[in-house]
Write a protein that binds this DNA or RNA. Structure first.
Lengths: 292, 292
DNA sequence: AATGACGATTCCGCCGGACGGAAAAGCCCC
DNA sequence: GGGGCTTTTCCGTCCGGCGGAATCGTCATT
């Protein structure tokens, strides 16, 4: 980095050779709470990869994104690579498969996925639509599994991807069964709008949540993608708590994407998909040990 | 530092208690390469979870497994939990879903899986057998995906799980297409035996590898589990390199587990499954951008 | 070939944060 | 209530992490 180079940003202003100045940088895209602890630096390196999907960064890229000096980055990346958290190809670094190994022992992640998979595949085979399995992480959902339907709508979802609770089918389900404090946090905060149909009013959202909790199924229309209907249902763990949600996303015209039969009265999705989703959720719950 | 502070000699001499004493101790259960760097300690904490599948540890458990003092563990676990790498429930810690988020941007991990998934599901639907997608990590394979067949054999495999190259179908494929040095390392090292049929002779293994490379398919019998035949084929990336392997495991009697038709002459698996696996591998290669 | 720009790597001295021990605070079971 | 165990906090020491600067390697331009 430029020794004499004058950075346009105020960053180098003082050049007080404190070893902490590097943090501020440009108010990084996400991580703002860097406490300059050694552990935080390691995590900052990993965060550099989480930020992007493209996931192939040079050492300098990592250094910039993590807000660390090149020297520090060099050393940390070296250690992480040796351990297997990163992989090096030429001059590009990527997340290593050892991370997958770790993720595999995540109870709410791949372990849950493992158990749910057969039922998700059945649901996918029956509907030919995008099938989702999601858990809640704070005020967002995280997709644990997604079975993609070639002709279906919305390829926005992605394993490990995060979305707001109020705008997704699975999110509504998880929010409806979440604790009071979680609901209040979402209801009191700003509700991001994606389409004209997105529920951004706390009153409406509150009603929707009550309805979802009562009927044990969420059916929403065009909350994120116009013309896409989301249908979701809760999955219970062994202790009865809602641990996850299963959902599908179908075109709102009610037809299956790969033209099958014509929809019956009331719409194909209403007649078939809703019960299918509910049944799938129940089967997974049972497989998890829920007494039902 | 106490520049002016004059340390009484005997003091520093007597207590030679360098802060590293804890490491060596009793030749820790696993990790021996701890270099007592801060980064290594963070990774040691994570390794504590990778060691077990059960994946639910108390603070003291983590401390023991990682070979760190309780104080250090307490602080690191706190930071990791705040970041999302760990999740706390009551007094038990688990791997957090943020790790899944990281793993999702692993090119050789979930990204590969994402692309391959439709073809794997087709193969699974056609064969009703255990379907595997694996990559090579050093001298082992790591399963990136596994579609489980309820009636099938071998539930030993597991996403993120590791197995030797010489004893698995996908491993043979990956080894056959690996570099010379990798092959020599395996051939010169001890070859772990699982069954009486496991190839543990370097001569035989060398021949098998040549055959696999020539035919572009591996068919092995009872290498790990008696009565289980593994069939695997290589997947090529955009640059033509072998990046992965697809495989299925079927009972050696040649019947599909869920009694379908009787096997044709030569065995059902030979007639149907081998071409199916090869075709699947080719389709995935094409989806990855292999010109072929 | 010389030059310049950029990234990766190594070296080095300083110092502040990480470390372990000790003690306190919970927690549970007998 | 006491004893054993785990978790949490406090604190002084000190050593390993830190950034800067220098070096090496690799391209692209002239």
């Amino acid at each position: 980095m430029g020794s004499v180079h004058v950075q346009p940003k105020e960053r180098s202003a003082s050049n007080g050779k404190r070893r902490d100045v590097h943090v501020a940088a440009g108010a990084g895209p996400r991580e703002s709470g860097d406490k300059q602890t050694a552990c935080a630096r390691v995590l900052a390196v990993l965060s550099a990869f989480a930020a992007t999907s493209g996931a192939s960064l040079s050492l300098t890229d990592i250094s910039r994104r993590a807000g660390l000096s090149l020297t520090t980055t060099h050393r940390l990346v070296g250690e992480l690579t040796e351990w297997g958290a990163l992989e090096r190809h030429d001059r590009q670094y990527r997340i290593g498969i050892r991370v997958l190994e770790l993720a595999a022992s995540s109870t709410r992640g791949l372990e849950l996925r493992e158990i749910a998979m057969p039922y998700l595949m059945d649901l996918h085979a029956a509907t030919k639509e995008n099938v989702h399995l999601a858990v809640r992480a704070g005020l967002e959902i995280v997709y644990v599994e997604r079975l993609h339907a070639p002709g279906g709508v919305e390829i926005l979802s992605r394993i490990g991807g995060r979305w707001p609770l109020h705008a997704t089918g699975t999110g509504l389900v998880l929010l409806a069964h979440a604790g009071y404090d979680v609901q209040e946090q979402v209801l009191s905060g700003p509700l991001q709008r994606f389409t004209s149909k997105t529920i951004c009013d706390s009153r409406t959202l509150r009603q929707a949540l009550a309805e979802v909790k009562r009927t044990r199924v969420a059916v929403t229309d065009g909350q994120i993608t116009p013309g896409a209907v989301a249908i979701a249902s809760p999955v219970h763990g062994a202790d009865g708590e809602v641990v996850s949600a299963v959902g599908v996303v179908v075109p709102s015209n009610g037809f299956a994407p790969r033209g099958t039969e014509r929809p019956p009265a009331g719409g194909w999705k209403q007649q078939t998909i809703v019960p299918a989703v509910v049944t799938t959720a129940r089967r997974i719950s049972r497989a998890l040990g829920a007494r039902h």
